[in-house]
Design a protein around this nucleic acid. Structure first.
Lengths: 219, 219
DNA sequence: AAATCGCCAATCATCCATTTTCTGATGCAA
DNA sequence: TTGCATCAGAAAATGGATGATTGGCGATTT
């Protein structure tokens, strides 16, 4: 399994945008990117056009590419969309998820929980690692929904939402950990109403947290 | 405003896939595409990778690209996703859409209605034209929702759903026209419940129609 | 202040090297 | 003779380099 250079470059750039290494709205000059990722211009264009179609970059006509800008309005739109999609997928998943689905949820929560405890204790863990486990847990919760298309759309929206959490460096510590715990319990009991309620609170809390950080940085 | 060659090639290929000119699951060989679209290989790769990230093509590792295959399961997934997103957007749009939104809905319906009448009468109109007006009307209905992200996701799902309608050559004639008329009236009265009810029936009818055509062709 | 000139960067093509995959022919065995 | 496995050649995809063209942006001039 040899994965293509364009593919790996795309994944690296995507990660760099989500984690803020390539700051929002910054211009993406071909020469700089060539030096940074050690690939040719056509390969760069291939990766960039994929990012643009995903909404993580924008193509400015005849002027190259830039990282997608961020705004409060866009964060609210993404959060609303994530809520819509994730609630629906969660309901389906709780209803039809098989036994092995539950064990995957338990496993994903265990990994997430361990790194959360370390972060709450003040250990400056790898944020990329934490993101992977947070994503992994939310993904596991809805994985039983039975629709690949639903999961794909969710993934795209989720990662763009996640970028706001990362650029604002928001980690809500114990509160988020408690909500994750509550989601785990709701999943094990297949309690759709409770799961939905906690998830809505979880997302709303994340948005409020990010907006406070935004206001603080803006001031 | 000179739009880039990669952009126009992408749009043309996207259209060719949706309308079945590039049949589902067919291999996309670079040399053939070069001859067909008169562009270079890197430009092709750029367009293809965008289509792949959108789900209209698939990248087979080290083996080039192919048009995304079709399946009954995928059609059902797309229809369910379209229903989820479009119902939500329709509700928001009916609730918060401004006055100019209504006039756009009326205008879009008028154009759609005229071509539908011609097709019912037996006039073999341009299918591309008809698709544009059908898309335009459904898009106009939800345009007032106020979320660009929601509209973008809807567009992606809608067009992939539309491909099934096009490859199966399904035109439901008077029934679809009546449902479009009912949607128009619901919009003008901002009747969310009625609009949702008609939209669900509209999508379910389209899926059933496509599946019947699928079964007939399979036999 | 507005228009123009020149520089820089993006777009896109052609050519080429490398690597992987597909195809078909050959040889061995049943 | 037929079926299957293996291997060699062909074909196709990947990715880099170079160069021509074009559009955008800033500085200078009127």
């Amino acid at each position: 399994m040899t994965l293509s250079l364009a593919q790996t470059t795309y994944e690296k750039m995507r990660s760099d945008i989500i984690f803020g290494l390539l700051p929002p709205a910054s211009r993406l000059r071909m020469e700089e990117l060539r030096a940074r990722y050690h690939v040719s211009v056509p390969t760069l264009r291939e990766a960039l056009s994929r990012l643009a179609s995903e909404g993580l970059a924008v193509a400015e006509d005849q002027r190259g590419f830039a990282v997608a800008p961020i705004s409060e309005a866009n964060l609210r739109e993404l959060a609303a969309l994530r809520t819509l999609i994730e609630l629906h997928a969660l309901e389906r998943s709780f209803q039809v998820g098989h036994v092995e689905w539950k064990s995957q949820v338990v496993a994903a929560h265990h990994k997430l929980s361990r790194i959360e405890q370390r972060m709450i204790a003040g250990d400056p863990c790898d944020r990329v690692e934490w993101k992977r486990y947070d994503s992994g847990f939310h993904h596991a919760l809805i994985m039983g929904c039975g629709s690949g298309e639903l999961l794909a759309v969710h993934g795209s929206v989720f990662d763009r939402y996640l970028r706001y959490q990362m650029v604002y460096l928001t980690f809500r510590g114990q509160i988020a950990a408690d909500e994750h715990q509550a989601l785990l319990e709701a999943a094990l009991e297949r309690d759709v109403a409770r799961g939905k309620e906690v998830l809505v609170r979880h997302i709303e809390g994340g948005v409020a947290h990010a907006l406070r950080a935004h206001a603080a940085q803006g001031a």
